[in-house]
């Protein structure tokens, strides 16, 4: 397996609070679950990996290249859905996806396909600001997957979702999986990610306390 993400001595501080403490990790291609209690640093780690948050110390390499927002090509290979949807509330779901499809230069049929995959076709003409929390979550995942990224970062993608919607999200992530690609799915509940993840990481108080391949019984470190 190819090492897709190399993290060395990563540290993130917000004022006096250390959100991530000297984190070292190697994440290989495939899908990794990122687990940990509230405040453990999961969202912070995903934002750093997306290039949206500059670390206080340490380095991150994605696909062998140093992570920097100046790298336009690298930026285009990242799909990120954070706590917020990243959608324009006044635009419909379809208009949002078409906008990001044009900006990413993806095929014009991708937005409609993503809507189908995530069970959003009946909401295509609904303004994103009028969606329920669950639909908004799915629309955010659709946006993150729209350009077939090589690195997919999903922060609590199952929040506010019923079982059917959760299955749609899992199905979309599984369909996206290809050799050479890597996904990190941060969640409280390991159960849903366990069904398809290859590996896992556990964070606690900003420290990586466990990392390894994921099996039905847990991690093999």
């Amino acid at each position: 397996m190819t090492c897709a993400i190399e993290i060395d001595g990563l540290q993130v501080a917000f004022g006096r609070t250390l959100a991530l403490r000297h984190l070292d990790a190697r994440i290989h291609e495939g899908i990794a679950g990122l687990f940990g209690p509230n405040g453990s640093g999961k969202s912070t780690l995903l934002r750093v990996l997306a290039g949206l948050l500059r670390p206080s110390a340490g380095t991150v390499r994605l696909f062998g290249r140093p992570l920097t927002m100046k790298d336009e090509e690298l930026r285009g290979r990242i799909g990120y859905a954070g706590h917020r949807s990243g959608l324009y509330g006044r635009l419909t779901v379809m208009e949002n996806l078409e906008l990001f499809a044009r900006l990413h230069g993806t095929r014009p049929d991708r937005p409609a396909r993503m809507l189908d995959e995530l069970g959003l076709s009946d909401r295509r003409n609904t303004p994103a600001g009028e969606l329920s929390a669950g639909y908004r979550r799915r629309a955010a995942v659709a946006r993150a997957l729209l350009h077939d990224p090589d690195l997919l970062l999903l922060d609590e993608p199952y929040a506010n979702l019923d079982d059917e919607a959760s299955d749609a999200v899992s199905g979309a992530v599984i369909a996206w999986r290809q050799p050479g690609r890597v996904a990190i799915v941060a969640t409280h509940g390991a159960k849903k990610v366990k069904a398809y993840a290859d590996a896992g990481l556990i964070l606690k108080n900003g420290e990586l306390i466990r990392q390894g391949t994921y099996e039905t019984t847990g991690f093999t470190v």
Binding site: A50, R75, R84, S85, G86, R90
Partner: peptide, 17 residues
């Protein structure tokens, strides 16, 4: 409008100068 629901994050990741 970029701040409202985190659209700025999505926008910063698009490969546009």
């Amino acid at each position: 409008l970029e701040r409202d629901d985190g659209a700025i994050d999505a926008l910063l990741l698009v490969p546009v100068d």
